[in-house]
Each structure stands twice: as C-alpha cells, then as structure tokens.
Design a protein around this nucleic acid. Sequence first.
DNA 1: ATTATTAAACAGACTAGACGGTACAAATAT
DNA 2: ATATTTGTACCGTCTAGTCTGTTTAATAAT
Lengths: 201, 201
Amino acid sequence: MARDGKPTRDKILTETKNLVFCNGFSGTSIDQILDKTGITKGAFFYHFKTKNALAKALIETYAEEDMSHLESALQETESLKETPLKRLLQFVQLFIDMMMTLKEPPSCLYASYSYESNQFDQETMDIVSDSILEWRNTFTELLNKVLVENTPKKDIDVQSLSDQFVVIFEGAFVVSKALNDSDITAKQLQHLKNYLELLFD
Amino acid sequence: MARDGKPTRDKILTETKNLVFCNGFSGTSIDQILDKTGITKGAFFYHFKTKNALAKALIETYAEEDMSHLESALQETESLKETPLKRLLQFVQLFIDMMMTLKEPPSCLYASYSYESNQFDQETMDIVSDSILEWRNTFTELLNKVLVENTPKKDIDVQSLSDQFVVIFEGAFVVSKALNDSDITAKQLQHLKNYLELLFD
DNA sequence: ATTATTAAACAGACTAGACGGTACAAATAT
DNA sequence: ATATTTGTACCGTCTAGTCTGTTTAATAAT
C-alpha cells in the first residue's frame, strides 16, 4: 500500500501533549505543532480532520496510558491482596517511587482540559471525568477491603478518601509547576500514605 | 475631569476572570470580554494597553484578594494563639466552612495560569509562585508553633506538610471541575484536618 | 526481475475569518 | 474649557482549514 503513518501520528500526539502542558490547548497553534514535529499541514490534516479531533485523540491516548498505570499498580500489589492495608499502602508507595524519579514538574491533561473545558465537546470532557472516576472506584475497592479488617481511627467518608489520591496528584502537579519544583508530588503522596497509616494502623 | 473609569475596569477584571476559568486565557478573546461586559474596544484598550497587561492586572488583583483571605483567617483564629494546635485546626476549619457554601465548582487562577505559563511573562508568573509561597510560609509558622508543644506521631517534613494545604485546594478544584461536583473541596480539606489531628493529638 | 497500478501518506500554496491592536472622533463630567 | 473616558471604523497578522498535486511502498501483471 503505502508508507506507515503511525510514527507521524504518534509524533503529533507526543509533541502536542508537551506543548499543551505549557501553552494550553487554545494557546497551541497547529503551526507550532508543525514546527515541533517537522511535518507539514498536509500530513497533519491527513491524520486529524480538525484541531479538536486532535484534542479528542490526545485525551483518549492519555487516558488509556493512565488506565494502564492504574492496572499495572493493581497487578504489582496483587500478591498483598490477603493483607488489604499493606496492599493499599504499597499501592500508594508505587506512585511515590514513580514520582521520585521525576526530573521536571509533571503535568496532567485532565487538569489542563478542565481549566479550558469550553474548548472541548462533551465527549472529550467525558473521557476526563470517566478516568478520574476510575481512580475513585479502584481506590474505593481497595479501601473497602481494608475496612473489613481495620477500624478507622476517625469517621471517614470512603468516597472522598478515595478521591484524595487523585486530588493530591492534581494539586501537587499544579504547585510543582508553579514553584518549578519536581520533588513536590512524591512528598505530598507520602502525606497521604501517612494519613492512611494513622487512620488504620 | 471626566467620568469614573473604575467600574469599567472592575467589570473587565471580573468578567475576564470568569471567562478564563472555563476558556483559559488564550482561549478568551478580547471580543468575548467586550460581549460579556458590554463595553467597547476603545474603553478596553484605554484601561489595558495589551491583552497581557490585563493578564498581569488580573493575577495581581486575584493575588491581593487571596492574600486578604489568608490575613483574615489568621486574624479570626488569633484568639487561639495560645493553643497552637487548636488554632491550626480552626484555621483549616474556616476554609472548610467557606468551601461548604459553594454552589458551583471553584477555580483558581494560579492553576489556570500554571497550565499555560508560556503565555505570560516572568513577572506575571512570579506573582503566582509568590502567592503560593505565602501560604506555605504562613502554614509553616502555624505548624512550628504546634511542634513546640506537640510531638507528631510520624516523622514529617514541615515544608511539604505546609504545602499540602494549597495542594489539596488546587487538586480539589481540578477534580471538582472535572466531575462538576461543588462539594469536593470541603470534604478534601476535612481529610487534611483529620490528618493533622491524627498527627498531633 | 522489472514494470505498472493503486491507495495511503505527505507537501505546500492558498483562503476566509478571527485575532490583537490602532486611530481618532465623540461624549462626559468637572 | 479641558482632561478623561468611551465608541467605532479600520489594519496587519495569525489561525484553522482546504485544495491540488506529489511521493512512497505494497501488490499484481508482464
């Protein structure tokens, strides 16, 4: 048939993501993307019908990667499933370790999109909310298993405690970017781990 | 002289802030601002030399209001200064109460600007980081007074624990917007309060 | 093995409209 | 009367998107 277009498509997605993290989506022009990727308008609009089609493909790809992070963290802690608290803490620890390796402030497309949500259609924004709800539900499952065996030291609302995982990520990303300090996220997650230990130990 | 321009200027600032929260700054055009405010281009460019001058004035105003929230929370808890832990907890409680009155998801310009920081000059972004550092420093002072009398149940890093206040705000705002749930922020702050109680009680 | 065919992948000039910004006249209040 | 404030027509640039044509590589016929 013809040459393989996947590398081009992937390059567009990768470079656009990096641009969006510091320019926002509206602030990222197609010409900028062409500069960064070295491709041309013809190639771009062959792969994406409109700029907003790119926005949707970008968040889809991002959400898929995000969900696979979630899955692999679940798998890596599955050996601890008989000790739910240990598993929960190890689950958090995995992300602490991950965040400790960062060399520059991290970013999240969910936050970026949420702060200019008018630019996107409902389907695109639904991917954002669905992904966040996946994290909530996963954490809730882990927490409910803990609650069978451990009595919390304080009355807690399981759903909002589940949300705290994503909340700390998102908040730490913002502060990390604002202060240009890449160490913040790991440290903030450590506080969540402390909290869980104090609650259930 | 002539008529008073301050109402016009204030209206521009208020409406722009609301637009930026859902369109981003790049995604907010001057024409949109004119539509929302009902003023004209002549008036706009009389008050702000460029669009970016508006961006700077906007974050300045926002930071001033933010700092006055900080100040008034300090004042409202000053009667508890002899019992540092009580004061710290009451300080957090004030913001829980404030967040419980919200009827729609809140937003923060610091986060909005940080996710399109390339659009702004250094001075503008410095206002963001300075403001966040003010919150950190204030919280650190409160915490240090607690530490004189209370021994934490876990080894903690004071600076990152101070940051957690802003981190939870910023993260809760993002999740609140993404899920369109205005109750999230108060609940998340409650977990911070729980954590502090478990740490120091 | 060489060539012709075909569809995918890409190149780049072009367009219509939106954008930030300007010029200057008109209006307002003292 | 005069400085401040506002209205409006206008301009050059940038933007997303189109159009037409060219290149690439797998396939099929010679």
